[in-house]
């Protein structure tokens, strides 16, 4: 693993705070707006506040993917990808660096969302459940990071905003981040199961309802991450477009 590369990537993000602010502020605001009015209601085995808190954690994880796609589009625009092909950097390591970067970048939004949940919304969970929920939503960033990689390579730099926006909206909607799964129309429920966001939400929420991770959901999520990551590697290798 190349820690220098990862460190430079983090440095770049810190210098472009817009992306970070977007991915931290948006889920935090949504959490307060949606969560506060019904924070004492219960839902399944948990509170509505806890349910929304986890949804917004996933939302933050998804926006890290948006950040990845955006930064790759910029890198392609300036010919950085061609430059990398003139170095020994192996595509697999490149993709791993990008995915690790997403995992680092998702932490601030998770910390803010879960912090607000525990304080402002008064979410009370056992220590073990907090840890599992946190790990679950953190893991859910994996397939989105890989997805961001693919979008970054497929979308043209000038259309990336729209592609990202649309995908983000669909994934959040189908993943049950805005509307709980059992309140969706039937056809949407069918489609939802074919999205990584549904499984990400399942992984993160299972500890709320059952006190443990749903390992089937974790497997599906990892499957998504591997397939999307593989496509991402192929795109990296294929992309030699001139700046």
């Amino acid at each position: 693993m190349n820690l220098t590369y990862l460190r430079m990537e983090v440095t770049r993000v810190l210098r472009n705070r817009r992306i970070l602010i977007f991915s931290v502020l948006l889920p935090a605001i949504l959490l307060l707006v949606i969560g506060t009015p019904n924070k004492h209601d219960t839902y399944h085995n948990t509170t509505v506040a806890a349910y929304i808190m986890v949804s917004m954690g996933i939302f933050g994880a998804m926006s890290s993917a948006t950040g990845t796609a955006g930064s790759i589009a910029v890198e392609r625009g300036v010919g950085w990808n061609r430059q990398l092909r003139l170095t020994p950097l192996n595509p697999l390591r490149y993709v791993i660096s990008k995915v690790l970067l997403s995992l680092v970048l998702v932490l601030p939004s998770l910390i803010v969302v879960y912090g607000l949940g525990a304080t402002v919304l008064g979410v009370r969970l056992s220590a073990a459940t907090w840890v599992l929920v946190f790990i679950g939503s953190w893991l859910s960033a994996l397939p989105f990071a890989a997805l961001g990689l693919i979008i970054g390579y497929i979308a043209k730099p000038d259309s990336i905003q729209q592609v990202n926006g649309l995908l983000f909206f669909l994934l959040a909607l189908l993943g049950g981040l805005w509307l709980p799964y059992d309140q969706m129309p039937h056809f949407m429920q069918i489609v939802a199961k074919y999205t990584p966001s549904y499984w990400a939400a399942d992984v993160a929420r299972a500890p709320l309802e059952h006190g443990s991770l749903n390992f089937n959901a974790v497997l599906v999520l990892l499957g998504w991450a591997i397939v999307l990551g593989f496509i991402g590697i192929r795109r990296f290798q294929a992309d030699t477009a001139r700046a």
Binding site: M8, R15, V78, L86
Partner: peptide, 14 residues
């Protein structure tokens, strides 16, 4: 090999 392309290949934020 060390190569210098005609343009691009730099990350402006670093």
């Amino acid at each position: 090999v060390g190569a210098m392309l005609q343009s691009g290949g730099l990350l402006p934020d670093l």
